[in-house]
Design a protein around this nucleic acid. Sequence first.
DNA 1: TCTGTTTATCGTCAGGCAGACGACTATGAT
DNA 2: ATCATAGTCGTCTGCCTGACGATAAACAGA
Lengths: 251, 251
Amino acid sequence: MPYDPSAFPPFAVTVDLVVLTVRRHALCALVVRRGEPPYQGRWALPGGFVRIEEDLGAAAARELTEETGLRVQGPDDLHTGAHLEQLATYGDPGRDPRMRVVSVAHLVLAPDLPTPTAGGDADSVRWAPVDALLPSGGGPDRSGEQPALLAFDHSRILADGVERARSKIEYSSLATAFCPPEFTVGELRRVYEAVWGVALDPRNFHRKVTGTPGFLVPTGGTTTRQGGRPAQLFRAGGATVLNPPMLRPEV
Amino acid sequence: MPYDPSAFPPFAVTVDLVVLTVRRHALCALVVRRGEPPYQGRWALPGGFVRIEEDLGAAAARELTEETGLRVQGPDDLHTGAHLEQLATYGDPGRDPRMRVVSVAHLVLAPDLPTPTAGGDADSVRWAPVDALLPSGGGPDRSGEQPALLAFDHSRILADGVERARSKIEYSSLATAFCPPEFTVGELRRVYEAVWGVALDPRNFHRKVTGTPGFLVPTGGTTTRQGGRPAQLFRAGGATVLNPPMLRPEV
DNA sequence: TCTGTTTATCGTCAGGCAGACGACTATGAT
DNA sequence: ATCATAGTCGTCTGCCTGACGATAAACAGA
């Protein structure tokens, strides 16, 4: 196809955000309530248009800050900000009834936060457990599937983001992105348990994470904020890949 | 940000294709020679504009067929066509000097083919070993890095696609997408060796792949097309994930 | 025909790692 | 003081993998 600059079809390009955190032993996603049609009053993923001179990742980081006040992890503050990565792009011609919109979805993993009411109005943005947003999260049996709870194709995007997070903490140290800068082995285990929805053996988990070089770095301090015996505090180490991986239990 | 349909910035949306195959023990990518500026005469990944009423995956499949004659694996012909999946989206404002182009890159894994001269003119499209296209394929030492050989940011896209293929054959049965419909264990092993650039022990490899349920299904036939003792022929089984995975050797 | 070469396939053995689970430690709550 | 809670250290067993020996079945060439 010869190049014809005057003939390219114009698209709207947006970023949508799957922002995940762990609150009260549950994996939660950030959702905003739509104030206008279509899907008025329904919950949706945060997002917005990409500006004409803006990189995709920068647009995602900007939308994140605008809607939640979260900052993205930079090269400096390696253990404070949230982790952001591109997830996938959704461009079905019918996904937005108004016009042709191609949305570059991004995945954000953030530690638990007081409450996400930074940019927009307070009660139109909130954390929702993903189990409530994706009812058929279980097996491959899709019979009796409920209609999607989220606007547009956002249920699909959320499901893809959750699955990415679930698989990525297997072979990377990304689970620490859900934790505060200093955390205990038990807190990290509860992250895995919430994201995977399973119970893990505390002893085997402790052996695995403390035995993986570069995963955890002890800070020297201890804490009893979880009750029980004081636990050592750790920071995330420099390792980004876990080899061998921490496989989630089957069945 | 309130929605304003008359104010969204218009983008051009394209698909770019990382088409990989294994030829003569080497991982090769499909490249086309550019006939017009910018980057006239340079090699680039195949691709083109997404049509205004066309899904992203459909656009990728269409471009693939137009430029190579390859057909994508459908639900019917499960073992003939090529595997296609979305790779990532590249939208840096400066990636195309002419205008703002957002490219949704796709990854295609195809069996070795006679020659890819279906659509365009013959000598402007060819298979090139990825080692030649990505000289610094080795370690993290990026000093003395050569300028990119491919046009635009296509070297980056190709590198991402190659890395995706290398990691994905670890934990999925996708390596069979590089093989003809019927293949031997040795041929499958040579695929792994070419993609990873390593030598694998034939005995351990044979034990692993034949012992993974659902990976390979014997057809009953044998072949000597590789020389030596006749080898059993297999088809790809129904399994898509390999558990435990086939980890590539370290070091 | 015999021998060497190539590829395929089966076995053996030792080390590493994960799951199951016992035992002990150090806090706070009652 | 006792209990409940959570953390940490060990043990044992079975599975998987890497290293490698041995055999089998074809072809090429002397």
